[in-house]
Write a protein that binds this DNA or RNA. Structure first.
Lengths: 344, 344
DNA sequence: TTGTACGCGTTATCAC
DNA sequence: GTGATAACGCGTACAA
């Protein structure tokens, strides 16, 4: 409520001096500083950040733009972004839940003048020109971009690699008849994981089109639904690779209910390594995705850009995705033996 | 980059007119509007929000201040806040991961001038005077406050009620020897749930101090650790009430590993009803906490306050917490029978 | 070391 | 309908 002028008058100094005090400028004597601080406290004064940033062209705020995500990936990502930002005393202006397209443009325009840079997740094709427009005003860091954008740095999760590692592992275990539960269409992570799945089969001399591929949306229920198809299938696939852990969990639960044992009767793999994955029964073999690290890196990259005086070359950083082997997959021979004793 | 002045010059009008066009004022003729819009597009102009809010005293932004939370509660809460905010075209200025105390004061000061109102979670005692200070400048809505604060509305989860319902249900099932895995100290939700647990026992004529109470921190591993104590205990409690689902999950997993069946040998209850709770083995009986609804209500309340011309009476809204009965609890007689046949 | 005065980009109040 | 111009609250050359 009180402005810098009132404080200045109360302390018997100029507004410039008050401003200096609140910017920790060394160009002010100790006792004037004290006097100013005292008046400020009495008036319950604190600088208005909006006015400040209008004048300095600095907001100390990073804009974050996300699509509508659910579950642990979202919270881990946000935690990474948030922690690193507040560690450096930056604030976060968040705009998620947008559906892409003109939405994104409007939202980023509303951020204009209120952010120093923008971190953005998964622009679909339509969002790309929005990105390029935003990029003319503030630096942009892309998360898991579908394709590189001129002048934007990016941080990515090695979805494709992770999926390839899963399939290689399964092939080593002797599996040849794999099923895949896909993620939502249009989702980059989902598509990259699917691509990894298919190309690994191809490389191994198997026909990806022969593999059973079920639709999914990254939610538990999709795994449940997939289970009925899988159980009905003859011959039954020896392993199911779910494009994320949530679906793997739904799947495992449904298989268990149907009396189908994991991994004795069928193997299951997930993707993400959510906190609960290790506590399932059996503990889930999956791919570790460091969503928190993804966010952290994005913020670091942004801060580097903001600190840098000149524009640096486009940087692309990849967060590795390592296989996390637990107990939900068995070798196919063990599985066959299990089948026999089961159908006995 | 281009300012309102440049657009005005290019279009041959005054800045006032440009401003009117971008505020959708009816006081401007169709063809001047068109001319302005064309010039704006050519110059790639868009109003600077910081300058705008300096002048209007409106930011169209809600500040959100959270402690360092983990897991699904956080992501659900954020989703609720975010969705409702963007539904009304409000942005969110987020500052979480703070540890309380002077931190909170600094963070809220940094928001000053950039938010229309502040939604804040779980101020500890120390944060209270910060809240009261912020409250003089912008409206404040409290989430799960430890105690009401003069002039602040609040939205709360019925933690206490939920815990009481759990215990009442367990008593009905015949349980008399209950164990409790607590949440982190200083956490309001944790404390309210614990209070509900203890008072329910008291009301039923049981001594709360006789009940086994184990420490926890809301993470899966705490449930695992609790399991060893519980399994070693003689006589063994017939049911374990974990203060949240994550710990219940760790607990159930560890019990299973130890060869202890749920609910035949021991019953388990959680709190939160996370997405996975229904897919556990056995599906977890828990309390449904609508974190998303909590966030939604908080934003609605804030928007109401912002729309209202006068200050309304202090409103306190409670989000109910309903028991969600699944399969992880059995009647104590069944349990005894199970024990016998087990130790046979 | 301190003060004066202008600029940051916009809206709001008048007058025309 | 439209245009000057004074706020809005602060930072910062420049002068003193």
């Amino acid at each position: 409520m009180a402005t810098i002028r009132e404080v200045a008058r109360a302390a018997g100094v100029s507004t410039a001096t008050v401003s200096r005090v609140f910017s920790n400028s060394p160009l002010v004597s100790a006792d004037t500083a004290e006097r100013v601080l005292k008046s400020a406290q009495q008036l319950d004064y604190w600088p208005n950040s909006a006015a400040r940033s209008l004048s300095t062209h600095r907001t100390h705020t990073i804009g974050i733009m996300l699509p509508d995500l659910f579950g642990e990936f979202y919270s881990d990502l946000m935690r990474g972004l948030d922690r690193e930002a507040s560690l450096h005393e930056y604030q976060i202006l968040l705009s998620s839940s947008h559906s892409g397209g003109s939405d994104v443009l409007a939202a980023s325009r509303a951020m204009l003048g209120r952010i120093d840079g923008l971190i953005m997740l998964a622009p679909d094709e339509k969002s790309i020109d929005t990105v390029e427009r935003v990029r003319r005003r503030v630096p942009v860091v892309l998360l898991n971009p579908r394709q590189p954008v001129e002048g934007c740095h990016s941080v990515e999760v090695a979805n494709y690699d992770g999926a390839r590692r899963v399939v290689e592992y399964l092939l080593e275990l002797g599996h040849r008849d794999l099923a895949f539960v896909a993620g939502p269409e249009g989702n980059v992570d989902a598509e990259e994981r699917r691509r990894g799945f298919r190309e690994s089969l191809q490389v191994a001399g198997l026909d990806p089109d022969q593999a059973l591929e079920l639709p999914g949306d990254f939610r538990e229920i999709a795994g449940v639904e997939a289970s009925t198809v899988i159980l009905a299938r003859h011959p039954r696939p020896t392993v199911v690779f779910a494009a994320n852990d949530a679906m793997a969990i739904g799947l495992q639960s449904a298989l268990h209910r149907a009396g189908c044992r994991v991994p004795q009767d069928i193997s299951v793999v997930g993707f993400d390594n959510v906190a609960m994955a290790g506590y399932l029964n059996p503990p889930l073999t999956t791919v570790n995705v460091d969503a928190c690290g993804l966010g952290r890196e994005a913020v670091r990259m942004m801060l580097d850009v903001l600190r840098a005086s000149e524009e640096s070359a486009q940087i692309r950083r990849v967060i590795p995705a390592a296989l996390k082997i637990r107990e939900s997959c068995s070798a196919v021979e063990a599985l066959r033996a299990g089948h026999k004793s089961n159908s006995n």
